[in-house]
């Protein structure tokens, strides 16, 4: 159970407005993507939700509770996997729960197995490929005690083929235990393929531009990437983004 409400968030740095009156809601079990050009303040929004800084005005509510400026309420995966190089894969994914004093090694092992990372429990991050590191980082989010997950362009550093592989993997894993996910991306295809809903942001300052409800049924297969309907969505969103520039 987790529903995130973002309410009239404004934030500026050095008199430059980065986020201007952002409001939206992520329902329980929903997969929502924030789509916008690079540098449109998407990551800043995550930092605000995570409580790293406070917004100038506006509030965040998680399950009705105000979490503005409160750290540790969401589970966050940054752009780079941010794994601890001295910890093994198993130790890395247990970090989140370790901070709150109840690491469950059994659960972690089961999760690794499900995520297709069985056998890598004792590997160190530098021994893994980029895609695998991202998988580990995502499993770490899933195992964190917070139920709301924020993913910040997790696949942006990967090559095209690995990317598609990872998107399918993410959908499969997510399908097993439907957490609410807020996903940042600047790839239109990625957003359509993964999300229930896409929120398009403009840049400088970021404002909420438009919302698209993506009707493809789940579980989704990669065939939909080539369907007429997919292209139609892509075109529509593309035009929306083009208008922004």
């Amino acid at each position: 159970m987790s529903q995130l409400i973002v309410e009239n968030i404004r934030k500026s740095f050095h008199k430059k407005t980065v986020l201007d009156d952002i409001s939206f809601t992520v329902e329980d079990g929903e997969f929502v993507s924030l789509l916008g050009p690079s540098g449109s303040g998407k990551s800043t929004l995550f930092h605000l939700i995570g409580g790293l800084y406070e917004p100038d005005s506006g509030d965040f509510y998680l399950d009705g509770k105000k979490i503005t400026g409160k750290r540790g309420s969401i589970s966050y995966t940054p752009q780079s996997p941010s794994l601890f190089p001295w910890r093994t894969v198993l130790k890395n994914i247990m970090l989140g729960s370790e901070l709150f004093g109840k690491p469950d090694e059994q659960e972690a092992r089961v999760m690794l197995e499900k995520a297709g990372l069985g056998g890598y429990e004792n590997a160190y991050p530098h021994q893994l490929s980029g895609g695998m590191r991202q998988r580990v980082a995502f499993v770490r989010s899933l195992l964190s005690p917070q139920s709301f997950i924020c993913l910040d362009e997790p696949f942006s550093a990967l090559d095209e083929l690995t990317r598609l592989e990872m998107q399918k993997w993410l959908l499969a894993i997510w399908g097993q235990n439907r957490r609410s996910v807020l996903f940042i991306t600047h790839s239109i295809e990625e957003a359509i393929f993964l999300s229930d809903r896409i929120i398009v942001l403009s840049s400088n300052p970021a404002t909420l531009k438009r919302e698209f409800k993506i009707p493809f049924p789940r579980p989704r297969e990669e065939d939909i990437l080539l369907t007429e309907e997919f292209l139609k969505w892509k075109k529509e969103i593309y035009q929306e983004l083009k208008v922004l520039q």
């Binding site: 930092h47 995570g50 409580g51 790293l52 750290r71 540790g72 309420s73 969401i74 589970s75 966050y76 940054p78 780079s80 941010s82 601890f84 001295w86 970090l95 989140g96 370790e98 901070l99 709150f100 964190s144 917070q146």
Partner: peptide, 27 residues
């Protein structure tokens, strides 16, 4: 210590002591 990892720890709700013991010291 990489700022990224510190951000991660902070957003995950780690205390100052946890950041030091689990991140900065091994780093």
């Amino acid at each position: 210590t990489s700022q990224e990892l510190i951000h991660y720890m902070k957003m995950a709700g780690a205390s100052k002591g946890q950041i030091f013991l689990k991140l900065e010291l091994p780093h």
